[in-house]
C-alpha cells in the first residue's frame, strides 16, 4: 500500500505539468486565448468561435502530441529493458526509418504523371505502419535466428544496420521519385503533429489502449528483464518469448505513433531517463511515469515549435532533439557523478 501511495505522490507533479501545459497549448495560437476561456470552451460553455477553435483546430493537435509522446516513450522504455541498455531507442532499431521507407514508397508508387496521388492521403499512415512493421519484423527475425549468446547486443547491431539500410533506401527513392513528392516526404520525415485530425487521435489512442492490458499483464516480465539473461531464465522467465513479445509491442507503438506524427526523435530515449531519475525505474508506476514524461516532452516541443518563430511553424521533431539531446547529455554526466 505504502509503495502505491509514494508512487502516486511522485506521479502527481508530472500529471499536473501535463494538464497545465495542455491548457496553455490549447490557448496558444494565432489568436491567444486565456485559460479561463479555454476551460469554458472545453466544458462547452464558451463562445461559439472559441469552441470551434478549441475543438476542431487545437485540441486534436494537443491530444495527438500527448498520445504520440506516450507511445514513443513507452516503446523506448520497453526497448531499453529488452536490450538491457539505457541508450536504446526506437530510432536505433530502424523502426522509424522503416516507417519512412513505407511513406516514401507510398508517395512514389501512387503518384501519377501530374504528381497527384492516385489514392487518398489517408492511406499514408497505413504505409508507414507497414514499413515500420516490416523493418521491425526483420530485426526480430534476424535476432531470433541468431543462436549466439549476446542477443541484446545483436538486436542493437542489426537495428543500426537496418536503420542505415532504410536511410539509404529513402535517399534513393527520394532522388529517383517525382521531385514534387520529395518535399512532402521530407516534411513528414522531420516529424510534426501540425496536421492532426480527430481520426489520427482516435487511431493512436486505440493503439495505446490495446497495448495497456499487455503491459499490465507483462509488468513483472518487464521488470525481470533487468537481470542478466542467466539469472532471469533461472528465475522462471521464458527469455526468448519475453524479448520477442516486448520487441513486437515496441515496434507496434513506434509504428502507430510514427505513422501519424512522423519521425519525432529522442522522446523514446530521453523520457525513460527522466522518469528513472524522478520516479525510479523499480518503483511501481514507472511505465506510467515514462508515458506522462513522453507526453509532456512532445507537447512542450510542439507548443514551442508554434511560438518560437511565428508565423513559421518548426517541426516538433526538430524541437524534441534540441530539447531532448542536451537534457540527455546532462543526465549522462550527472549519472556518472552519482556513480563515482
Amino acid at each position: 500500500m505504502m509503495a502505491g501511495v509514494s508512487a502516486l505522490v511522485r506521479l502527481l507533479p508530472v500529471m499536473l505539468l501535463v494538464s497545465v501545459l495542455t491548457l496553455a497549448a490549447t490557448g496558444i495560437g494565432s489568436s491567444f486565448m486565456p485559460p479561463d476561456r479555454v476551460v469554458a470552451a472545453l466544458a462547452g460553455q464558451g463562445s461559439r468561435m472559441d469552441e470551434v477553435i478549441v475543438w476542431t483546430l487545437r485540441l486534436p493537435r494537443v491530444a495527438l502530441a500527448i498520445l504520440a509522446g506516450a507511445a514513443l516513450a513507452l516503446a523506448g522504455a520497453l526497448l531499453q529493458r529488452v536490450v538491457r541498455n539505457p541508450m536504446a531507442s526506437p530510432s536505433v532499431l530502424g523502426i522509424t526509418d522503416g516507417a519512412a521507407v513505407g511513406v516514401v514508397l507510398f508517395l512514389w508508387l501512387f503518384s501519377d504523371q501530374a504528381n497527384n496521388l492516385t489514392v487518398s492521403i489517408h492511406w499514408q499512415p497505413l504505409a508507414a505502419i507497414a514499413g515500420a512493421a516490416a523493418f521491425g519484423a526483420l530485426v526480430i527475425a534476424l535476432a531470433s535466428l541468431d543462436r549466439g549468446s549476446s542477443k541484446p547486443l545483436k538486436i542493437i547491431l542489426y537495428g543500426i544496420a537496418l536503420a542505415a539500410l532504410a536511410k539509404a533506401a529513402v535517399t534513393l527513392l527520394i532522388i529517383l521519385g517525382p521531385v514534387y513528392r520529395a518535399s512532402q516526404a521530407l516534411t513528414w520525415l522531420t516529424g510534426s503533429v501540425g496536421a492532426a485530425h480527430w481520426q489520427d487521435v482516435l487511431a493512436v489512442g486505440l493503439g495505446l489502449a490495446a497495448v495497456i492490458p499487455v503491459l499490465l499483464l507483462q509488468r513483472l516480465t518487464i521488470r525481470q528483464l533487468v537481470l542478466d539473461p542467466q539469472s532471469a531464465a533461472v528465475s522462471g522467465l521464458s527469455l526468448d518469448r519475453a524479448q520477442v513479445c516486448l520487441l513486437a509491442v515496441a515496434v507496434f507503438l513506434t509504428a502507430m505513433a510514427t505513422a501519424h506524427v512522423g519521425a519525432i526523435g529522442f522522446v523514446g530515449l530521453v523520457a525513460p531517463h527522466v522518469a528513472r531519475i524522478f520516479h525510479g525505474q523499480f518503483r511501481s508506476g514507472y511505465l506510467f511515469s515514462v508515458a506522462l514524461t513522453g507526453s509532456f516532452l512532445v507537447l512542450a516541443a510542439d507548443t514551442l515549435a508554434r511560438i518560437i518563430a511565428p508565423p513559421l511553424e518548426l517541426p516538433a521533431g526538430a524541437l524534441t532533439a534540441l530539447v531532448g539531446a542536451p537534457l540527455f547529455l546532462y543526465l549522462l554526466v550527472k549519472g556518472r557523478q552519482s556513480h563515482a
Binding site: L227, D228, S231, V234
Partner: peptide, 12 residues
C-alpha cells in the same frame, strides 16, 4: 533455483 557465476543487475 540456481545462482550463476557472474550474475548482474542494475546497480540502482
Amino acid at each position: 533455483a540456481m545462482l550463476s557465476q557472474s550474475p548482474d543487475a542494475p546497480s540502482d
